[in-house]
């Protein structure tokens, strides 16, 4: 559960579930005996809607939907609390965005981090899951440790690693012991993005491990027995049974990681704050800096709209793409 993200494939799945649901009668909260009394039913229905849904709906509208609408509106203005008043300026912000090389750079950085984290955390999660999928206290302890970074705040993780990665930090000292010379992990412009990605991989690997373990354990054992009878060796078993049936796990991990890394903020702010210069600035960091430090709220809103569109497109593409691979059994 890479921090703060939510399973976005939810939308898709529940849609599908909704379709399979048998058609119920209109007001299932009422016993059928009461249904004939039309007036009462209507009253009850509105009361029930009010009792059950209104609070959630209201607060959701206030703090999610209305802000999205406002954000889109702001993106067409030059709103800046450091100046008096503001006006609608049409697509000016978006036109500026197209010319803003720093924003383009932020998109590239975000994509690199997202890609590395998704692939590396998945791969390492799978390997570690295969490694510890046995019963013994050793493997239990390993599992516990692999998962621990997951429950820590990204702020804490970021600070711990920032000490590891400074020039005379622990990592360089360790490399020194074995005769290698390190580098400025957080100041070298050609490395810093990978350092950040590595820290996020360290933190999110445990999540992948746990998900893969659950998927591995859900694979029916008779499949392996059948394979044994057919004379398959270990590698064949993995290739033809385990790997295809891991697909749901891969889908979950990929979607969770992609979405969480696309809005990555906490790690970056603590590790480098976008530096050196703007080398490691991600989209989220750029939005928050532009909005709350440079106070260009209108311009930042247009970036937010772009990020939102990006996340929407990516989650749809990834979910549909990965779903196709999954095998039913």
């Amino acid at each position: 559960m890479p921090n703060g993200n939510k399973p976005a494939l939810a939308v898709n799945k529940s849609l599908i579930k909704g379709k399979h649901e048998e058609k119920g009668s209109d007001s299932l909260l009422l016993p059928s005996s009461l249904k004939s009394r039309g007036v009462k039913k209507l009253n009850n229905k509105t009361t029930n809607f009010f009792l059950f849904v209104s609070h959630g709906l209201f607060i959701y509208l206030t703090f999610v939907i209305m802000p999205i609408v406002l954000c889109i509106y702001y993106s067409f203005t030059n709103f800046n609390p450091l100046f008096k008043g503001f006006k609608v300026i049409g697509f000016q912000n978006y036109a500026d965005l197209l010319k803003d090389s720093a924003f383009g750079h932020a998109i590239v950085v975000t994509c690199i981090i997202a890609l590395i984290v998704t692939i590396a955390a998945n791969a390492m999660g799978l390997l570690s899951a295969l490694l510890v999928n046995y019963k013994s206290w050793v493997y239990n302890a390993s599992r516990t440790i692999f998962f621990t970074p997951q429950v820590l705040s990204p702020v804490v993780v970021g600070f711990i690693w920032s000490i590891m990665l400074t020039d005379d930090g622990v990592l360089n000292k360790l490399l020194g012991y074995i005769g290698l010379s390190g580098t400025s992990w957080l100041a070298n412009p050609s490395i810093v993005v990978y350092s950040i990605a590595a820290v996020i991989v360290w933190q999110s690997m445990g999540f992948c491990t746990v998900v893969f373990l659950a998927t591995l354990q859900s694979i029916p054992s008779d499949l392996y027995e059948a394979a044994k009878i057919d004379g398959c060796n270990r590698r064949q078993k993995f290739r033809h049974i385990t790997y295809p049936l891991l697909a749901p796990g891969i889908t979950i991990n990929t979607v969770m990681l992609l979405i969480s890394t696309f809005k990555v903020f906490d790690h970056v702010v603590v590790l480098t704050n976008g530096g050196p210069g703007t080398t490691s600035e991600t989209i989220s960091l750029k939005i928050i800096n532009t909005a709350f430090n440079e106070n260009q709220m209108g311009y930042a809103s247009s970036m937010a709209v772009v990020l939102f569109a990006l996340i929407g497109v990516i989650s749809i593409v990834v979910v549909t793409g990965l779903k196709r691979r999954e095998v039913e059994y």
Partner: peptide, 24 residues
């Protein structure tokens, strides 16, 4: 439809809505 409308909220990162949320 209402359910889908709610679940749409799963896709929204806080960075996007933070500016207007502050205003609200």
């Amino acid at each position: 439809l209402l359910l889908v409308f709610f679940l749409f909220g799963l896709m929204v990162p806080t960075t996007i809505i933070l500016i207007p949320v502050v205003k609200v």
